[in-house]
């Protein structure tokens, strides 16, 4: 193995660890917004590092790999924003430990009914 493939394999391993931790956060965290936090940030960095690592290990592919990586880096936060906005507007309840909900305080999201703390029925969201 040459030196570029060793460096590429290291970066790919870093990215794979981040992908696994993001998925673990999706399984473990209590409500939709926390899951979205873990799932978006960790998988964006993990996919970016994995694809760039492939481009370093195989230097002919670096241009196409960078196109895919930059596309993932740009579009993943947009889809996460759309998902969070959609789940807030469709009145998905927040986690019970939530202390502040600025969007409801300022009256910008009128259509949400009883989002924070009002419902004790779904504590934690886990079985």
């Amino acid at each position: 193995m040459t030196i570029t493939s060793v460096i590429g394999a290291l970066i790919m391993g870093f990215g794979a660890i981040f992908l696994f931790l993001g998925a673990f956060g999706i399984l473990r965290l209590p409500d939709v917004y926390n899951r979205l936090q873990a799932g978006t940030k960790c998988t964006t960095l993990g996919a970016f590092c994995t694809i760039v690592g492939v481009g370093i290990a195989q230097p002919d592919w670096i241009f196409k790999a960078l196109i895919v990586a930059v596309f993932v880096l740009l579009t993943n936060p947009i889809s996460a924003h759309a998902l969070a906005r959609a789940s807030y507007k469709s009145a998905v309840p927040l986690y019970d430990g939530t202390v502040v909900d600025k969007c409801r305080e300022f009256g910008e999201c009128e259509e949400v009914g009883g989002a924070a703390g009002a419902s004790e029925s779904d504590a934690g969201g886990e079985e």
Partner: peptide, 13 residues
Amino acid sequence: LVAVDAMITITTA
């Protein structure tokens, strides 16, 4: 939907 969105990114990598 959040879980499927994360699966999409992992599958791309």
